[in-house]
Write a protein that binds this DNA or RNA. Structure first.
Lengths: 340, 340
DNA sequence: CTGAAAGCGCTTACAG
DNA sequence: CTGAAAGCGCTTACAG
């Protein structure tokens, strides 16, 4: 089963050179003569020489592996980010190991530790929902280049790559105001979710700038933002005295639940109540009416995150690396809000 | 930045033992006395000793990394399999590197090679659609434990883990026959897709066993099975003389396209035309009417695939390893077929 | 411009 | 039951 492996030593023997020279030639060391270098490289190529990555990693304390932690790999948006990460990693010669935290801080800590133990060169993390407990992340950051993406946290002094949640939400709400909605409800997550709070901030700013008073009864916070919760909260919103004429759900799933419930009660969308989601997931063009939502460029986010990380690993950036990178998301207007 | 690292040597010095002994104690070598072993283990624990995985991998020619190749990581069903793989990998002490082939044989070959070069212990592959060219896969199989899952191929003599496509399709068609459908169309992929052919085989068997003659005009093959193709092919099916009274699309996406088109023409579902998909994706409960479909237990498939692979890697199985493992999928009946 | 030698952290055949 | 030594494949400071 084991094939005869081509090593530096073997190449050296054949060329009657030392392994040192062969190694240097292959690594384009300036000391080596042009002639030797090409001779070595040609042989290496023709013999299909492949460096033993483990010997190399062992020697250099560098593995060219990047660890990625995400809360939930089955979310479509997450997979688009992962795709960007994988593509850019391949280009730059890195491999990626992925793990899922399932939104569990304890599991996330475990994952971070395993990855460090495993010797990854750096870590890309999208945090669990509750970012109260960030000790493990901070500790990891002490030892390794680490960059946050998507689910980030201002408690962690490192480079962070997200969508411009606040602005995107602002634009969504402004759109609702433009189509003459006055009582705009928001379904968001309970505090501690960075993303949700940002979107909420955009909601508040839009209302404020258009002189609409915030009605607390229209601000709904749930523990777990899901399709089911979208349904439940819509039932609730329909029961209050002065019901809303628009509902902004901070995820598409929840927005789908909203629409399904409104339809059950024969409420006209968007005439009676308009609906906006967030993500531009595949659901948004399957639900009827099609959902107005914010498109998040997942691949770009993933690609950027790993770019910054690799730059840090390879020390191309100074250590001033606590930038906030915001990738623009764009509002996609569909039937759930379009008609005035 | 670099922390002082605890190595075997350091432990040995402190305990006044040789590194050999410490190594053996930690690895539960039978030669070592109970006393020494516990002494060593206690110290290791208290000093937070973590073996250098790269030194270990280098030494043992074992990396505890498994490579996974999938056509498209953004498919929901794929992510559920990945989740099963990740969970089982963690339990068994393996790490997983993932890459996407984008249904491109050339890219798939590249991925396989990179992974081998990288020194993975084994590979889990879900193949590109066109499995005509399997040379690279066969070569990989020659050098490394390799198991196929989901998108498999009978041209490759190795263990394969899939859903029972044929039987699941058979059940779907039988269900349509039971609700008195006579002209059942199928939208499948052009040949070379193992999965599609299996489902088609189930279709044929069901018709045959119920004495329904196959009408070639109702067998639609497309290159790329997608929502758009579902729409287009439905338009086509509606235009033929004796139009179908049921459509079985071999993916949920295509089935959603089917339903959307039928609705556009105000055709009653399922009374006029019933629809069945395959996957139980999230779309299936958002589209209206909700889609009858086959639930594929992705996590179970992923978990099984990696189990067999690790068993092979660790030589727990004989080398007779060209089993076909079929995981049962179950028909989930919803409104797109339910009412008679 | 090239080579000999040491060493990264681990395991294991050999010796006692 | 324990230790000394070699070696996995690579890189690099040192020497010439």
């Amino acid at each position: 089963m084991k094939k005869e492996v081509v090593t530096l030593k073997k190449l050296a023997q054949i060329l009657d050179l030392s392994t040192s020279t062969v190694s240097r030639a292959l690594n384009d060391h300036p000391d080596i003569s042009e002639e030797t270098r090409t001779k070595v490289k040609n042989l290496a190529q023709s013999m299909n020489y492949v460096p033993n990555i483990f010997a190399k990693g062992f020697r250099n304390h560098k593995t060219n592996i990047i660890g990625v932690v995400v809360p939930n790999i089955t979310h479509y948006f997450t997979t688009t980010m992962v795709r960007g990460i994988l593509e850019e990693a391949a280009i730059r010669g890195y491999r990626v190991i992925i793990s899922e935290s399932n939104n569990d801080v304890k599991k996330q800590t475990e994952m971070l530790n395993t990855m460090m133990q495993f010797g990854v060169d750096g870590i890309l993390a999208s945090l669990t929902k509750m970012t109260r407990d960030v000790d493990a992340v901070l500790q990891t950051l002490n030892k390794l280049p680490l960059i946050l993406f998507d689910k980030v946290s201002n408690k962690i002094p490192c480079t962070q790559v997200t969508i411009n949640d606040e602005e995107a939400a602002y634009n969504a709400i402004e759109h609702l105001i433009n189509i003459e909605k006055k009582r705009i409800a928001i379904i968001k997550e309970r505090e501690f979710s960075y993303t949700s709070e940002k979107r909420y901030a955009g909601y508040l700013r839009a209302l404020k700038e258009h002189n609409i008073k915030v009605d607390d009864k229209l601000v709904i916070s749930v523990d777990d933002i899901s399709l089911e919760q979208g349904k439940r909260m819509t039932n609730h919103l329909l029961s209050i005295k002065n019901r809303p004429d628009a509902i902004f759900a901070i995820t598409d799933s929840a927005a789908v639940g909203v629409i399904q419930t409104l339809k059950k009660f024969n409420i006209k969308i968007p005439e009676d109540i308009a609906v906006i989601g967030f993500s531009n997931s595949r659901l948004s063009t399957v639900i009827e009416p099609n959902l107005t939502t914010v498109d998040q460029p997942g691949e770009t986010i993933g690609r950027n995150a790993i770019k910054y990380l690799i730059d840090e690993i390879e020390n191309k950036t100074q250590i001033v690396s606590n930038k906030m990178i915001e990738i623009k998301g764009s509002l996609i207007i569909r039937d759930s809000t379009f008609k005035v």
